[in-house]
Design a protein around this nucleic acid. Structure first.
Lengths: 251, 251
DNA sequence: CGGCGTGTTGACCGCTGTCAAGGGCAGTGG
DNA sequence: CCACTGCCCTTGACAGCGGTCAACACGCCG
């Protein structure tokens, strides 16, 4: 019934989801797919630099990234900014705001961003009728928590060089897992200012740190992005576990 | 049937849960209480300094803190440690391990700790039969994520003094919310070494920072703990929002 | 052309880490 | 009752990592 209206506002049907066929995502049952399709209210696009979610606002929507990059951040009253994590295809955003009312962080698009929009209202039904999907949402929340743990360890205890290497390496691995830049060279659409705000460093010191990595031939900066040349050595410098990505749900 | 065995291993029945009457926790339906009671497998106690969960292990249990304090942390191969968050009565721990298999962080008792033990096996049934509880678990995961966001902002962008004030203030407020130290003076069972590992600072510098707070009459250190004297001014120094705690679930 | 965003560098300084030492207190064992 | 040990808080001296300030280069675009 409302199916047509929905069709009108979306260009990608769930049946032909460009993400779901990726090996990283677990298989969904027919009934689950059907529900997700009905759960999806429409699509939202955001240009580079646009705010998708804003700290302090009451946005009742839930989103899954279909394509593009973005980042989650918080700010202090005086303007200091801390990037909490990056989002890329397959990631769920807005859960905190949906569950607890007010957004406690913002999300901004790093590149043109395409989002599937889900409505809060149907979340109850999801929990009632599709425990598997409910479990998936919890799973995704736990995964986000895990990434935050790792970032906190990084900012709190790693040196500037280690932090930088860790950030670049982990973003690269996440990107690969969702099929971005499969053709060899991996390009991260980030600026050094973003990196600085992620690592808890100043812009200048970030630049000097990145320069070290570049001088060693591990990365290269070109037109608004970071090109990764030697993922293995970056991982070594970060000396982190990097547990291999297992199958995960895609809501 | 197994009721008796369960009784044997627990001293606190869910019906007479010492936590649930607190105003901070939402009311549970009869059926929910019944399920939680059956979900509870037993109790676990841990002495100060004991490890409850260990990074890298496969522990299939889920726990709710009944009484006592603890902390979650991660370590780097060379021994550097980062405390991610603290746990206190009403907090759920072990969710990451339960959902994703391997623990990516450890949990240690700060004081004698009493835990309710839940078994992973029944989690599926919880999601199937009690969507409200399933929702609660997701909610708790989102809350943890929110606290981590705030900690990351702190470690990444706040000065040493701000971080210290923020940590003390937020722990104090959390403690008050679950009825700890209701009689005026609030005592946090932490050492300066713990604080250092939480804030991403060295022990020495942490000491000098805490000294500043103490000299201003905001806190006082005595027998293995931190006594809070002026919560309001600590909050001012941290200049953070500190959204008031809303009702929350207690699984 | 001029403005803007972004990367790059040098100079300088201070916050924070490291090293070292000492004090108070509780527990323990002679 | 008194060493003795371990844990924790405290302080001073010194060094260095990283912040701040300032300038410049380069490409893009109105």
């Amino acid at each position: 019934m409302s199916e047509q209206r929905q069709q009108a506002t979306r260009r990608h049907t769930c049946e032909r989801c460009p993400l779901r066929p990726l090996p990283i995502f677990r298989d969904f049952a027919e009934s689950e797919l059907d529900f997700v399709a009905s759960f999806k209210k429409g699509e939202l696009t955001a240009e580079r630099g646009a705010s998708v979610l804003i700290e302090g606002s009451h946005n009742a929507h839930l989103y899954t990234v279909l394509s593009g990059w973005g980042f989650r951040y918080k700010m202090l009253p005086d303007g200091r900014r801390q990037i909490l994590n990056y989002v890329m295809p397959g990631d769920l955003i807005g859960l905190q705001g949906t569950l607890m009312g007010e957004m406690q962080h913002s999300v901004e698009a790093l590149s043109p961003l395409l989002l599937c929009v889900f409505e809060r209202n149907k979340l109850e039904q999801l929990y009632k009728c599709h425990p598997g999907l409910a479990f998936d949402i919890t799973w995704l929340a736990a995964r986000e928590e895990q990434m935050l743990d790792e970032n906190l360890l990084s900012v709190g205890r790693r040196t500037a060089l280690e932090r930088a290497a860790f950030l670049i390496a982990s973003l690269t691995m996440r990107a690969k897992a969702v099929g971005l830049n499969g053709n060899g060279a991996v390009g991260l659409p980030i600026t050094q200012q973003l990196v600085a705000d992620t690592l808890g460093l100043s812009l200048v010191h970030t630049n000097k740190t990145m320069r070290k990595l570049a001088d060693r031939g591990l990365i290269r900066w070109r037109d608004r992005g970071c090109e990764v040349l030697d993922l293995e050595r970056l991982r070594e410098i970060a000396h982190s576990e990097f547990p291999e990505e297992t199958k995960r749900p895609l809501v």
